[in-house]
Design a protein around this nucleic acid. Sequence first.
DNA 1: CCCTGCTCGTAACGTTTGTTACAGGGGCTT
DNA 2: AAGCCCCTGTAACAAACGTTACGAGCAGGG
Lengths: 286, 286
Amino acid sequence: MTGTLDSPSIAERVRASMARFTTTERKAAHVLLAAYPVAGLETVAEFARRADVSAPTILRFVGRLGFASYPDFQKQLRTELDAQSKTPLAKTPERSSAMRDGGAFLNTFAAAVLDNISTTFANLPAAEFEAVVGLLAATRRRVFVVGGRFTDALAQYLSAHLRIVRPGVVHFDGQADNWRDQLLDVNRKDILLVFDIRRYQESLFSLAAKAEARGATVVLVTDQWLSPIARHAAHVLAARIAVPSNWDSSAAMLGLVEALVAATTDRLWDSASDRIAAVEELRRDG
Amino acid sequence: MTGTLDSPSIAERVRASMARFTTTERKAAHVLLAAYPVAGLETVAEFARRADVSAPTILRFVGRLGFASYPDFQKQLRTELDAQSKTPLAKTPERSSAMRDGGAFLNTFAAAVLDNISTTFANLPAAEFEAVVGLLAATRRRVFVVGGRFTDALAQYLSAHLRIVRPGVVHFDGQADNWRDQLLDVNRKDILLVFDIRRYQESLFSLAAKAEARGATVVLVTDQWLSPIARHAAHVLAARIAVPSNWDSSAAMLGLVEALVAATTDRLWDSASDRIAAVEELRRDG
DNA sequence: CCCTGCTCGTAACGTTTGTTACAGGGGCTT
DNA sequence: AAGCCCCTGTAACAAACGTTACGAGCAGGG
């Protein structure tokens, strides 16, 4: 029964024969890989429901993978699960055949991103982080958020979340010229949170300088080399952004933003939970 | 709240009630902990044989743990397996109080994000990734990008980069109503790249369905549970998004997007390098 | 336009599984 | 030393499961 010839892992086999599957079988394949390996450990009916296909399709899927029966398939899945004790990525360092440069590229890229994030969080001063959370949780103060060419997406992402847990969140979007008008609105008790990474933008610098001049508290989220805005910032949070690519990676910075949002939400939970419920209500009606 | 405040993990529960077990039940407990959680995912008969006890003893064992049936026990086991990526921090029992301490919170949060990313990349079908890169590198085709409430930031991020290396990139932003007008412009040779994560948005679904009906190639970037849009998508890329927070994390999804941008840039390098230089020129002048 | 191929879901089948009643057996109490 | 009780495995039951035959639906080719 248990032939001891070590076949490639099921996940690999699925990825390799992705092209051979029919449309619905491919759906099953995606569901399995997305919720690996739990989806395959469920019953056929549950797996089928999860993938929105019929039970026979699941069986044809595992049949095409070379298994004589669904229980056989599950047994193999459990065997792999038992053998694996490393992190999923480290587990697949070299996928030899049928995997072109795509696999290698993805692995090195992922490794760089992971390294960025762990380094970023490891070097993050907890006190500085806490201080920024404290500012974001001060609901009486308004928060203005702005980003650069690529980091503006992060500014938007932060605003979209923060807006739900507290009032007074403004995202400076659009042309830099428009910021000047909104800047008139900024005063002593306000907070300006700026994203700026290398190829630092002059427009952001002048904005931050003016906001500071008006008495606002400036928070800077930047890369490890620190934007010149750091001179005008009360708090600085730095993230790693280098990856083997022509572009920089904002993944670590996004992780940082999400940590800020999570911590702020937690601190404001009493009032935030009501706001979230209210927002959901509005979304349902609208 | 944090979603992890359910009942304690099964492994913990087993260790806690170890004293209450009878002799043979304790045998089952040790076997389960030694081969956790695989032993519990097998059939009752196999579990019994492994522990060298009878099947009813296994049933009495899970009954004493508080489960109404063996399938219930297995379902809980799978849920835990899916939630925590198993090995790394499974031993830290009390994560609930971690929110208090800033440093500990950052560590657990970072660990979750890291795990999401490594799992996402490990389970990513290289062929599917390559196919999407191929689409994005087809400069004659136009690319329409759209996202949901929170993922729209990712759509914007992708657009901002893609727009530099190739022409014909359109970001559907603003109100969903406005999309309809721009949809008229979509035809057979176009590509629609949709971001949609849980609390899947109906507006995105109908947009994707209509785009597919018009003959466009739909690419979906979603979470591990797969948006219903998968039904209309030619290619699906799934990322992990769960973190110990009230919110989901898009960090893994951003890493995925950046990998797409990097690979596409690389493939288009001959033409892209000229474009990038030209864009830089414009920025310097402007 | 009809035909042929393949794909997919419905429904019924047979098997395995989880479950439970019951009786044998070992250990502690009296 | 005998009796009682709590375990524990054997065996029969019922439920759920995996499996398979069949036909509808659809796309490509003649």
